[in-house]
């Protein structure tokens, strides 16, 4: 028996919004530790890794490890039927071929349930190596989303250049060129507004705007985003989901042939 409950459906809606543009379908691996999802996007250039810890749920029970292949378009249709404040419970029997989403209104007067067919998906089991990154930047998630949106008007790629002074985002194309520099903040009242840089050595890497923009769909989940970069290895864009887990996106840098 698997059962996981969150007191507000809005969290699950935001998680789904953060992955559904990159993945058509995905396997949710459930264990007593929580829910894990790991999948390459359709074009095999980026990887999504989602962790929702069991202790972050309002109720969590998973008697036996369970892999649930879900069509994210169908899941999205179902979650649209929930109000943000509804309690959401996901339930499945062991070896089931369906999962049930149950939504309950705050006053307990409306209860709805939606059963969705599960899919058998070919899963790639990929290992994520431990990596010491040359630069780790933490910055407001909204600011990062804004920068990616603004720069994608100028070119298909963004160059991220990080030194101990700050981080620079650049793009160029037919219109002209654009540069946005962020300095490390010296002092801020609110931690979520800080820009911090941990640098071992400077890096300058180029990434596809299209993917960075897709990653910023996770912005509503977190105040801050963390960018971890080293030469010739995938960038990690991490959003921490308060008290519940995290979502990490990996994207290979573009390399001149």
């Amino acid at each position: 028996m698997f059962e996981a409950r969150l007191n507000a459906a809005t969290t699950l809606k935001k998680v789904l919004d953060a992955i559904k543009d990159l993945l058509n379908e995905a396997t949710f691996d459930c264990s007593d530790a929580g829910i894990q999802l790991q999948a390459m996007d359709n074009s095999h250039v980026s990887l999504v890794s989602l962790t929702l810890r069991s202790d972050g749920f309002d109720k969590f029970r998973c008697d036996r490890n369970l892999s649930m292949g879900m069509n994210l378009g169908s899941m999205s249709k179902i979650l649209k039927c929930a109000n943000n404040e509804d309690t959401v419970t996901m339930k499945a029997q062991d070896n089931a071929d369906t999962v049930t989403f149950m939504f309950e209104s705050q006053n307990h007067e409306k209860v709805s349930d939606y059963e969705m067919k599960l899919m058998n998906l070919d899963q790639e089991h990929l290992g994520i190596p431990e990596t010491d990154y040359s630069c780790v930047v933490r910055m407001p998630a909204m600011e990062f989303a804004r920068i990616c949106r603004d720069l994608s008007q100028f070119g298909e790629s963004v160059i991220i250049c990080c030194t101990k002074e700050g981080v620079k985002f650049s793009a160029s194309g037919d219109v002209g060129s654009a540069n946005i520099k962020l300095a490390q903040t010296s002092s801020v009242d609110k931690e979520e507004e800080a820009v911090t840089i941990e640098m071992q050595e400077p890096v300058s890497l180029t990434f596809a705007c299209r993917y960075l923009n897709a990653f910023t769909k996770a912005t509503p989940l977190s105040n801050q985003v963390q960018l971890s970069m080293s030469a010739d290895v995938p960038l990690v864009v991490e959003y921490r989901i308060p008290d519940l887990g995290h979502i990490r996106y990996y994207l290979a840098p573009k390399i001149e042939e």
């Binding site: 990929l126 995938p234 290979a252």
Partner: peptide
């Protein structure tokens, strides 16, 4: 594609 190759090399198949 080079990007796909980088991803493949980095995430070792288990």
């Amino acid at each position: 594609q080079l990007e796909q190759l980088i991803m493949k090399n980095y995430f070792l198949h288990q």
